Amino acid sequence: MRSLLTTFAFLLPFRSLKIRLLNRLGHDIHPTAFVGICLVRNVARFELAEGAQIGHFNVFDGLDEIRLGRGSRILLLNYFMAGYTVGPGEERGEYYKRLQMGDNAHIVTLHVLDCSGGLVIADDCWITGVRSTVLTHAFDPQDGAIIVEPITLEKGSLVATSCTMLPGSVLGEGALLAAGSTAWTRQELAAGSLHGGVPARRLSPLKIAERVYDLRRYTG
């Protein structure tokens, strides 16, 4: 029943009523947060800090926890799922079926993000552009098993448009994954660098200007 009521609450157009109802259902939504009209199915808990925003027309399916830090934002038309459930006796990692976003982290538009193994996005990170795919579970052809591992974006890192990140990959602090690139399974991409290609490789040192992180430059 709680799951169905959460689904209903997210479809309401009235922001203040929606937040009050979600908090009564056991979620933790700050009064200054914004929660748009979204399709939510079987999500156990939302935590939205001061000024956090979830825009309209996102889909959230099957996650245990969604946590947005202060000022973090999910814009429009993204699909979040936890598409794989570990079997009896299989280990559940710390971030299993969790989306965790730090302060002032952003996910823009039209991305597909599998959070089965966990997606951990640190402060001031961006998943920009459109059509990037984040896969935290994938088939391992060597032994026929399923790899379920979290993907991590360290502080101030950026993912450009149409990228792919595979299970266990890490984008280092202040690094940029260039448009159309793929971070391979368990690949660690060095901090302060531009990475590109399939699989991604380090192309050059990189220092991202502070103004790049200012959302107002892009949304007005």
Score class of each variant (00 low, 15 high):
R186F: 13
V120E: 10
L135A: 09
I208M: 12
W184T: 11
P141C: 10
L113F: 13
V40N: 08
I19F: 08
R73V: 01
L176Y: 07
G180V: 06
L17S: 06
S181D: 15
F139T: 06
I107S: 07
S16D: 14
R67P: 07
A160E: 14
L113G: 11
F10A: 06
F8N: 04
L189R: 01
G89R: 05
R41S: 12
I19K: 00
E90D: 15
H56F: 13
G172A: 14
C115S: 01
L25E: 03
N23G: 06
C125Q: 05
T152W: 05
V86H: 12
H27K: 02
P88H: 04
R20E: 12
V159G: 01
A44I: 05
M81E: 13
A122Y: 02
D114V: 05
L203K: 05
L177G: 08
D64V: 11
I74C: 10
G156M: 08
R201Q: 04
L135R: 00
Y79S: 07
H106E: 12
I127M: 11
F46N: 04
V212I: 13
L194R: 00
G192T: 03
A178I: 14
A191T: 12
G102Q: 04
A175R: 03
R20D: 12
R211M: 10
L12G: 03
T219D: 04
A49M: 09
I37S: 01
F139K: 04
L12I: 01
D214P: 06
L5E: 15
E173D: 14
G180K: 01
R186W: 11
G180M: 10
L194H: 02
T7E: 15
Y84S: 02
R98S: 06
I37C: 15
Y95K: 02
R201L: 15
S16F: 07
F10I: 02
A209D: 13
G102A: 13
E90A: 11
G197K: 01
T32R: 00
P150E: 11
R131L: 15
R45K: 05
